[in-house]
Amino acid sequence: MSLAETLTDIRARADWAALPRALPFARMLGLRVEVRGESFTCVMPFEQKLIGNPALPALHGGAIGGYMECAGILHLLWSSEALAVPKTIDFTIDYLLSGRPQDTYANVYPIKLGKRVSNLRIEAWQTAPAKPIAVAVMNMLMR
């Protein structure tokens, strides 16, 4: 099944739990998508393989960054009618706290949804949404 067919099928059945399985990288990170009404959340359940510093221990910064970029893409595939993966133009992340060995949540805020370019802000948090461990902004080329 092509990605376009998979996306059409997921949208027809509103089977958003299947969305991360459509992208190999999201599947590797074990991402989960939870949609309740108009609210979209992407979760990265803790796994040992995501650790970067075993001494602390802390999640790898690259795992947090990759997860947030992926959350942004999944959000666009949920909120738009795109039948192809939008291309990342740039991705900027600020790390605020070290990632603890526990589940991480991402809230995605679409700042601008354009025909050509969309701009998203993503906040990743663990203990409370008001205490983000990282914030990111990305520009995406829509296709």
Binding site: G62, G65, G66, E69, C70
Partner: peptide, 10 residues
């Protein structure tokens, strides 16, 4: 995925 490059650069 760009996220793989993010980890590589970090």
């Amino acid at each position: 995925h760009g996220g793989a490059i993010t980890a590589l650069m970090d």
